[in-house]
């Protein structure tokens, strides 16, 4: 019984340690936006207004780009 508890305790401590170490490691700056994007994609909340706004903003940006390219004759 003592061995069982010890092994579980060791693994729990291992998890806490790795979790703390991972949290203290900074995320590369370039990837901060990507994390939000993926979390947003993976979310299944269909009534989320942030997601809707993000999609609308992206669409607007695409349209703006197309308009500018057409204007410049690409």
């Amino acid at each position: 019984m003592l061995l069982t508890i010890s092994i579980v305790a060791i693994i729990v401590v291992l998890y806490i340690t790795t979790f703390a170490m991972n949290k203290s490691t900074p995320i590369p700056e370039d990837c901060l936006e990507l994390i939000d994007e993926v979390s947003c994609d993976a979310c299944n909340n269909y009534s989320c207004t942030i997601k809707h706004d993000a999609a609308t903003i992206k669409e607007d940006m695409k349209n703006q780009l197309k308009y500018e390219q057409a204007k410049e004759g690409y």
């Binding site: 579980v8 693994i11 729990v12 998890y15 790795t18 490691t25 995320i27 590369p28 370039d30």
Partner: peptide, 24 residues
Amino acid sequence: ILVIASLVQLVEMFIKKVSKKLYK
């Protein structure tokens, strides 16, 4: 369960430190 959770944390930390491209 605990080993897998720890492994994911370790792998994530390793990738964060070693390769920005891979983390991306």
